[in-house]
C-alpha cells in the first residue's frame, strides 16, 4: 500500500466538505449517501436530483482514477461473501440508524447534532471491534 499522505487525505476531505456545503446552501439538502440511495431507489419523479448526484459521484471517481491519479487505486480483492454480507448489514443498519459516514459524520457533525455524534461514535467503535475480531481473534484476512 502507498504511504500515508496527509495532504491528499485532507484535500479529499475538504472537497467532500465543499460538496456537502454546496448541496445544503443551494438545494437545502443533506449530502448523506445512504439517504440519497434510499430515496433514489423509490424512482419518484421529484427524487431525480439524487440520481444526478450519484451520476456525479461516478464521474468524480472516474476523473480521479483515469485522469488525475499518479497510480491506479489498488484493486483490493476479498471474498465476495464479505462484500455481500457487509453490504447487507450496512444497508440495513444505515436505514435503521438514519445515516452513514456522510449523513451522520460529515453533515450531522457539521450541524452539531447530538444524535449524529452518538451514531458516529457507535459505528466507529463497532467497526473497530469488528476488524479486531476478524483479524486478531479469528485470524481471517478479509
Amino acid at each position: 500500500m502507498a504511504e500515508f499522505n496527509w495532504l491528499t487525505a485532507l484535500g479529499g476531505g475538504l472537497l467532500i466538505g465543499l460538496s456537502a456545503t454546496l448541496l445544503l446552501a443551494f438545494n437545502g439538502r443533506i449530502a448523506g449517501i445512504s439517504g440519497i440511495v434510499n430515496s433514489a431507489i423509490t424512482f419518484k419523479k421529484d427524487e431525480i436530483w439524487r440520481w444526478t448526484f450519484i451520476l456525479g459521484m461516478l464521474l468524480g471517481g472516474a476523473i480521479y482514477e483515469y485522469g488525475l491519479a499518479f497510480e491506479p487505486t489498488p484493486k483490493s480483492t476479498f471474498a465476495p461473501w464479505a462484500a455481500i454480507a457487509g453490504g447487507f448489514l450496512v444497508g440495513f443498519g444505515t436505514r435503521m440508524g438514519g445515516g452513514c459516514t456522510s449523513g451522520h459524520g460529515v453533515c450531522g457533525l457539521g450541524r452539531l447534532s447530538l444524535r449524529s455524534l452518538v451514531a458516529v461514535l457507535i459505528f466507529l467503535i463497532a467497526a473497530i471491534l469488528t476488524v479486531f475480531i476478524v483479524r486478531r481473534v479469528l485470524g481471517l484476512t478479509l
Binding site: A82, G93, G97, C100, V118, A126, T130
Partner: peptide, 18 residues
C-alpha cells in the same frame, strides 16, 4: 442498534455507502 449494525458491516467489507 442501527449504527452498531452499520459498523459491523463496515468492518467486514471495508466499504461504507459513499
Amino acid at each position: 442498534i442501527g449504527a452498531a449494525i452499520f459498523g459491523v458491516g463496515w468492518g467486514i467489507a471495508g466499504y461504507c455507502p459513499g
